[in-house]
């Protein structure tokens, strides 16, 4: 039995309703899920299902109303360098060069002196050695996102949280970046939670796909993806699984677990 690296139990979160600040609106309701070490799990669901809120809770940027969030055997109480977060907008610090952005985590934790050599390593890991002195506004979207990834990875996070990191990229850059993220993930094997609205991306990348429903956000189903990597986006197994999931999302509750099981058996 592998110890779960990230464990959520009955997590609920509500925010003041936008139309009536005195009323609370439930955003996440009873979220229970465990990720094993080194697992890559995708969160898919309609907008407003609380995917991003869930990620912010795990990052420690929000406090849950109730429930338990654990990393290994420790409860999450606030933000920490062991849980790296990458947003859809790379959010690079525009006043720092690429190199200084990647260093930021080391500087913040006072580790720059002893780990200075790592900076170059992470810059070449994401293929940006030549851009160390460039400012973020000179970078393309894909390059900026790679800097954001390197900036998160340099802390060696136990858990990597990706909030639609490829959502703003064009289709081709996006596919290339999916391979890039997979390469980084398989090299380091951080437990990774990926929020996406792209089902292809979820199937292509993850070990399991968590499908959520909206208002309040709950976990509808968890679908294991057992296709061998590297995956072929046009293989019949891939397409079949895609069809199943699409059907699930369109007729949420209409599909029975058996149909998913058959899809898995077929793909395995």
């Amino acid at each position: 039995m592998v110890t779960p690296s990230l464990r959520l139990r009955e997590v609920t979160k509500s925010f003041p309703a936008p139309d009536d600040p005195l009323r609370q609106r439930l955003v996440l309701d009873g979220i229970t899920i465990s990720l094993t070490t080194g697992e890559l799990v995708s969160l898919v669901g309609p907008s407003g299902c609380g995917k991003s809120t869930l990620l912010r809770l795990i990052a420690g940027l929000e406090v849950p109303d109730s429930g338990e969030l654990m990393i290994g055997s420790e409860a999450i109480t606030g933000p920490s360098a062991e849980r790296g977060l990458v947003f859809q907008d790379p959010n690079l610090f525009p006043w720092l060069t690429v190199r200084r952005n990647i260093e930021a985590g080391l500087v913040a934790r006072g580790l720059l002196q002893e780990r200075r050599d790592d900076v170059g390593e992470f810059m070449s890991l994401v293929g940006l050695e030549a851009f160390g002195n460039a400012y973020p506004h000179h970078l393309s979207g894909g390059m900026a996102q790679r800097v954001a990834l390197a900036r998160a990875l340099i802390n060696h996070p136990k858990v990597l949280l990706l909030d639609e990191p490829l959502g703003a990229l064009d289709a081709f850059t996006r596919m290339r970046m999916q391979d890039e993220v997979l390469r980084l993930w398989s090299a380091r094997r951080s437990t990774t939670l990926l929020v996406t609205h792209d089902i292809d991306e979820a199937i292509y990348m993850s070990d399991r796909i968590v499908i959520m429903t909206a208002r309040p956000g709950t976990i509808d189903r968890i679908i294991p993806v057992t296709l061998d990597r590297p995956r072929d986006r046009s293989s019949s197994e891939f397409l079949q699984l895609r069809g199943e999931i699409l059907e699930l999302l369109h007729f949420a509750g209409g599909a029975t677990p058996e149909t998913i099981l058959t899809a898995r058996v077929a793909s395995a």
Partner: peptide, 29 residues
Amino acid sequence: TRASYLDVARTLGAGPRYLIFRVAIPAAL
């Protein structure tokens, strides 16, 4: 200061000193 800069810095392990002097003030320049 853009909240997301502060959020990112927090998840990178930044304390209040870093948040003020290395994020908020440069962002406000």
